[in-house]
Design a protein around this nucleic acid. Structure first.
Lengths: 143, 143
DNA sequence: TCAATTCCCTAGTAAACTGGTAGAGATTTA
DNA sequence: TAAATCTCTACCAGTTTACTAGGGAATTGA
């Protein structure tokens, strides 16, 4: 029912890259440090995100990871799905379920509700919201 | 991210009782048989549902379990929560998260979306939907 | 070309969780 | 009192989770 720690790490890592919005690669070690993620664990996650087509990488001295698509074309849902598997409430309908069971319909409604949030939220949205939060903080501060 | 098998069993068991809508108790064995749930496992689940205040029970020859509240006052979400724990996307916010992290807000939005489905669906609703499905089936049949 | 730096890949692993099973005990009723 | 039924505790095998370990491969600067 909940997102795994691994899933959260993945989101935070992509978010970290989206915030920099830099063309040059960011090192695993930097992301791990900033986001407080165990580095070796993060390596696995980033590699998976690369294989899934979200990230690109470069080796060697000034190497690291970077987004291959702009942040407004990566949704939270998409990242979550490749790390944690299908975002669904029930697994495939239990065997031998009676044909007028009301549950399958319930699950699809719940899944649609969930998707309407996570599949419509891009990392650009998240970055923007953070900016707004910061702006508000500063305003309150100045007053 | 998904409902456990145990959670599904719990829902099906409550649904079974809601369908009968009988004042007399229903035996574990009957529910297990109708819903194809391993009986010993179901025992644990029903006992938990009793301790959580959804069901009552009676021992002895004509014993069994029954709903203590009418089906329109039991929501899917409530049952799910006592069996599977809090229906939330993220566990408690990860330590040391920066104050303008956009994720907590995202999770509350997702949780609200989910709740709007499962906390508004009662077992009376489910029973009714099943009736409608059946009615439609019969109509198609007759034509 | 060498060595430092960085990503890449495979494996292992302790602890928790899941989906059960086993068996004896407590209550109720006939 | 016996049969039926719920109740309670304990156990367990298999899977998943959240890591850690260690070496290999590419890139680059000197």
């Amino acid at each position: 029912m909940d997102v795994s720690v691994k899933g959260e790490y993945a989101l935070r890592a992509v978010f970290d890259l989206a915030c920099r919005n830099a063309p040059e690669p960011t090192k695993i070690a930097k992301i791990a440090e900033r986001q407080k993620i165990p580095q070796k664990f993060l390596e696995l996650i980033l590699s998976q995100l690369k294989q899934s087509g979200f990230l690109g990488s470069k080796r060697g001295v000034e190497g690291g990871y970077f987004l291959v698509r702009p942040a407004d074309q990566i949704t939270v849902g998409a990242v979550l799905r490749v790390i944690d598997g299908p975002v669904q409430l029930s697994r495939k309908p239990i065997e031998n379920e009676s044909p007028d069971s009301p549950f399958p319909e319930l699950w699809t409604r719940a899944e649609r509700a969930l998707s309407s949030v996570i599949d419509r939220t891009t990392f650009a949205d998240l970055v923007e919201r953070r900016q707004q939060k910061r702006a508000r903080r500063v305003v309150n501060w100045e007053i």
